[in-house]
């Protein structure tokens, strides 16, 4: 199973259909900094045939741009709309990845999404065997999609 390809396909599709924005994937990263500054992370848990989580990490600036495009409004501060939008992005991305994994015969169910943000915070998730860290470029900057998955034995 090519998890990196699932992440790229899901991200390009969701940004094109939901935000009418073209995003360009970069090269997958071997690891990332644990520390995020002035950023937001949206995350959603995945359980069932695979156990793990999907997260999107972005700067406040990119988060506000995504929210503005998504909701069709002007966004000037990181408010509840922004947190909801970034959590919902994680939810939609995970939904799309889930579909491609389900075709592989694995049933996956998603949890309720969360949004984490702040001036400086660390974000860690180690539990999984397979990890994808895929950076993407959009007109307003870059963001990172992280997928952590562990296949469950029957």
């Amino acid at each position: 199973m090519d998890f990196a390809k699932s992440v790229i396909d899901a991200t390009c599709e969701i940004f094109e259909t939901m935000l009418m924005t073209r995003v360009t994937p970069g090269d997958p990263l071997p690891n990332r900094s644990d520390v995020f500054v002035d950023g937001i992370s949206g995350l959603v848990g995945m359980a069932g045939g695979y156990r793990g989580m999907l997260a999107i990490h972005c700067s406040n600036r990119v988060a506000m741009a995504i929210t503005g495009t998504f909701l069709g409004i002007d966004v000037e501060t990181v408010d509840d709309d922004v947190k909801d939008a970034i959590g919902e992005m994680a939810n939609m991305l995970a939904g799309s990845v889930k579909t491609s994994l389900s075709e592989n015969g694995k049933d996956i169910k998603l949890s309720i999404p969360s949004a984490v943000g702040g001036e400086e915070y660390t974000f860690e998730c180690h539990a999984a065997a397979d990890q994808v860290l895929m950076p993407f470029k959009m007109p307003d900057g870059e963001f990172l999609v992280e997928l952590q998955l562990q296949e469950q034995s029957e």
């Binding site: 848990g45 156990r51 943000g117 400086e120 915070y121 660390t122 999984a128 562990q150």
Partner: peptide
């Protein structure tokens, strides 16, 4: 129920919002 994997957040000032 089925469980996902834990993520850990730490810092001097941050927010965690469980959505919906």
């Amino acid at each position: 129920i089925e469980l996902a994997v834990p993520s850990v957040i730490a810092g001097s000032s941050y927010e965690v919002n469980l959505l919906s």
